[in-house]
Design a protein around this nucleic acid. Structure first.
Lengths: 349, 349
DNA sequence: CAGCGTTGTGCAAACGTTTGCACGACGGGA
DNA sequence: TCCCGTCGTGCAAACGTTTGCACAACGCTG
């Protein structure tokens, strides 16, 4: 027995051994109705015996489209995206698709390149969450031109009507802020990010909705824009504390900046939630481990991944080139924890 | 201008427009030396102009191997694997490869299936981190038979000599434990996982090494086996506290079980690090946010991903079928934080 | 001027599928 | 008996590359 690399059995091998044509074998394996049950059984039996596996490269080449789904995310680490990707992979592999992952590193040029390479890999469809610096849409036109279904998730360029699965961030922002109001906080600040990204814009709008509902003014000095990581949270919190009239609560558009804020507060001996209420966004794992535990808005990340994938698969099935863009909006969930509970009661509802 | 899906320019299109043969064009694009500089330039110019991108399916089919790297991980979410995958993707795409991701969901059967589908996608090589339930090796023999380079990372089946990039877990366990000893803790417990996985076995060995070095006995009742998540940490900690003579410190083989332990301790009013020292493993993000912050062992996850990928790429380059398995061992780094600092001094070294 | 090596290019086959079309066999109705 | 429809199968082309081999043109050496 030589240890020469064994060629994997091909459809031609099956055909030869069974005295059939490759066409028949191919059809038998894909369940074509015009094949007699007898032959179908013979084929599948032998296929199993020889451990036959279709060569998806060949199939893809012939069909002009592979069984690959392309995914472009700003980065794979971190709670949110890794969970979304988990959902994507699960849904895709369930449907017999593979997932090709690219990171844009929050960089527009990278994102462009990602799309190119995905197209040259002949992916059947593409899932994208925009990089934070992606403020234009041109690079997606090429994808459209080639009729490759495209689904955005979470981060979408505002004002573009595309297939998308997003969170109802406005509702998220609204609920978070209303919760703080119900807890008696009245001077509520907000951390927000780039406004060309739907997520930050909508969270802010929800925040403002809630304030207005309570007849409170939206004060410019209370809204701090940044890029929403921990150091940014430090900076933003310090800025707020330096105000002549500092806030009594913060609704942060990200758990990370909320965590940063919390560090500054702890450092200065301010008590949370007594002196300052705090609500984050994303329900990161660490939120249940901080002291106090951090109230946050859960985004159902994995569900978002699954949903986006399912939408993409639907689009792949209908071969109608361009139907009207479809939207799915997922509802966020406010998880109340200690960092915002001043009354002791979970909710004043 | 009709919006019919535009066919992407192929090598044949280039050939026709330039009055050349496809062979010449192909060679020109891949930098073959036998092509005159003049033609090479003509080809690349037109290629750029038409936005030509090679069809990697066709190339893969012809060459019998794609530009895809398969990755099998237990799951993509969570800090460790998502960071490793980040490293893998970065290194792979830098070398012109794509990354195909599969999750085994910590399940042997899934893992088997993952390998099959990766092979039918004609991946050039495979990176694997074993599922927690993978206690056998048979499914990898098929991969070997087909001469597909295989590199394991982090989790390897003990006693199998394979290409692997792992952490020096024994050193990690040793340093963590010695640090606790230096801080004056003398009755140190340990949380460990399945012993057929290198990581848990080696961390435990390192733990025992350190104890022996200090002339302390390795006590069976102080080593708790579990599967290392937060609930498991709760259970294990309770079990230890119920001992007639509870420990004064715990070195946990995972940050998650350490976090679980911390919760139990806080609940019972025990102070960390005064009453109980605590060290975790993996340097999860939340470790810097717990109270007290959790001392942990950093694994350089992203570096591990990069290294494993680079090793795989090397194996791909040498077409020698089977050289001796190569090992890379990365050094862990102990990050001392408050949860283990009883003396106030960072290290008694 | 014959012979030879070098240089640049083209021919054609191959990779493993899928699929439109054709074809043979068979059975039933007129 | 003839014709037609149905059913199951096969032929052959196509997908876009890569690559071994052949070959033409050219300049050089002897």
């Amino acid at each position: 027995m030589h240890s020469v690399a064994k060629k994997r059995a091909s459809i031609t091998d099956l055909a030869r051994q069974l005295q059939l044509s490759t066409s028949t074998v191919s059809r038998a394996l894909s369940g074509h109705p015009a094949i007699s049950e007898a032959t179908a059984k013979r084929v599948t039996m032998l296929a199993k015996e020889l451990g036959y596996r279709p060569n998806s490269l060949a199939a893809g080449l012939r069909k002009g489209r592979s069984n690959l789904l392309g995914v472009v995310v700003p980065h794979i680490d971190g709670n949110f995206f890794s969970q979304v990707v988990k959902g994507i992979e699960a849904a895709a592999s369930q449907a017999g698709y593979h997932v090709l992952i690219c990171q844009s590193n929050e960089d527009l040029a990278h994102e462009r390149e990602n799309l190119e390479t995905l197209m040259s890999a002949q992916v059947a469809g593409i899932l994208v969450s925009l990089s934070r610096t992606s403020n234009e849409f041109r690079h997606f036109e090429k994808v459209r031109k080639r009729d490759i279904p495209l689904v955005f998730f979470d981060r979408v360029l505002v004002g573009h009507d595309v297939n998308a699965v997003v969170l109802d961030d406005r509702a998220g922002g609204y609920r978070a802020t209303r919760h703080l109001l119900e807890q008696g906080y009245r001077r509520i600040a907000h951390f927000s990010g780039p406004q060309y990204l739907n997520i930050y814009k909508h969270r802010r709008q929800g925040y403002e909705d809630a304030l207005r509902e309570y007849g409170l003014p939206v004060e410019e000095e209370l809204i701090v824009f940044g890029h929403m990581d921990m150091p940014d949270g430090h900076a933003s919190m310090r800025q707020l504390l330096a105000l002549p009239q500092p806030p009594d609560a913060v609704f942060s558009g990200s758990d990370f900046s909320a965590a940063g804020a919390l560090e500054v507060l702890t450092e200065r001996g301010l008590r949370v939630p007594e002196d300052m209420g705090l609500v984050g966004f994303s329900n990161e794992v660490f939120g249940r481990l901080t002291l106090p535990r951090l109230t946050s808005v859960d985004q159902h990340c994995e569900l978002m991944g699954r949903t986006a994938t399912r939408l993409l698969l639907e689009l792949l099935d209908e071969r109608e080139p361009a139907s009207a863009p479809r939207h799915v909006v997922l509802q966020p969930e406010l998880l109340v924890r200690a960092s915002s509970l001043r009354t002791g009661r979970p909710e004043a509802r």
